[in-house]
Design a protein around this nucleic acid. Structure first.
Length: 252
DNA sequence: ATTCTTACA
DNA sequence: TGTAAGGA
């Protein structure tokens, strides 16, 4: 929130040279030839500037870097250059700290982010499905689950493939699953239990899918698979309803 | 002289 | 996590 972008060039800084001929990305140029500082401009910051923008001290920034909580900066001789990616990461860290997370926990989360990103890209999570992915910021995800987005839970969600990391945003693989999970948490179910249940459901669903695929493969043409797909979902939906009736009415 | 690292408190 | 000291 409280960002002081304007104060950057306003004050007479102690470094008279400023940027030492750094080949920066192209500025937002209008047709009139004027350049204006676009918000969220992709530029680089030295340590002191990044720390100011992130609202932390230089020492803390260095500390985070030693713990591997932020990626190493671009080194130009002795000077460390950070970019907006680092800034976004620092803001996420601050937000998580305010939510009571520990530094080591955030370090786990960070490594989970990176491993999850690699795993997601390696596995090529492109599946033909009706489920629509939803993009959201880490903060938005935390809001969905009432502060239950612990590093452990996030790692589990990454493991399950529920969420992947895309740049600085998180992608949940299914809007329906996201909303249902959030609802369960709001109803008082711990997110860890939701994820554990999700893992079991995943296994049973895989078994059901294998069963239907087998039946369809042996008795119908392969080109009919897509057309018959809703039948399989209807069967499971109906059977689950009946099973829930039995469970929730017979047992007190 | 400035920026960053190391080490100590 | 602050700070003093030293290397580049």
């Amino acid at each position: 929130m409280a960002e002081d972008e304007a104060s950057e060039g306003a004050r007479g800084d102690r470094t008279a040279k400023g940027r030492t001929g750094e080949g920066r990305k192209a500025e937002g140029r209008t047709t009139e030839g004027r350049t204006h500082p676009a918000p969220g401009q992709a530029r680089e910051y030295r340590v002191a500037e990044l720390a100011r923008k992130a609202g932390i001290t230089e020492r803390t920034l260095r500390f985070y870097r030693e713990r591997g909580l932020i990626p190493p900066p671009r080194r130009e001789g002795r000077i460390a250059w950070y970019d907006d990616h680092h800034l976004a990461r620092l803001r996420t860290i601050s937000a998580l700290l305010e939510r009571g997370h520990t530094l080591s926990g955030i370090a786990d989360l960070t490594s989970a982010f990176e491993s999850g990103r690699d795993a997601g890209e390696a596995l090529g999570l492109v599946e033909p499905t009706e489920e629509t992915p939803v993009r959201l910021t880490p903060e938005a995800l935390a809001d969905h689950f009432a502060g239950e987005v612990t590093p452990e839970n996030l790692a589990a969600a990454l493991e399950l493939g529920y969420v992947t990391v895309s740049g600085e945003e998180i992608v949940h693989i299914s809007r329906r699953l996201l909303e249902v999970s959030a609802s369960l948490v709001r109803e008082g179910v711990p997110l860890a239990d939701v994820l554990a249940a999700g893992r079991e459901v995943r296994e049973h669903a895989d078994a059901l899918a294998a069963l239907f695929a087998d039946v369809l493969r042996t008795h119908t043409a392969l080109k009919d698979a897509d057309r018959l797909r809703p039948l399989a979902k209807a069967v499971v939906d109906a059977e689950l309803s009946l099973a829930l009736d039995r469970r929730l009415t017979q047992e007190p």
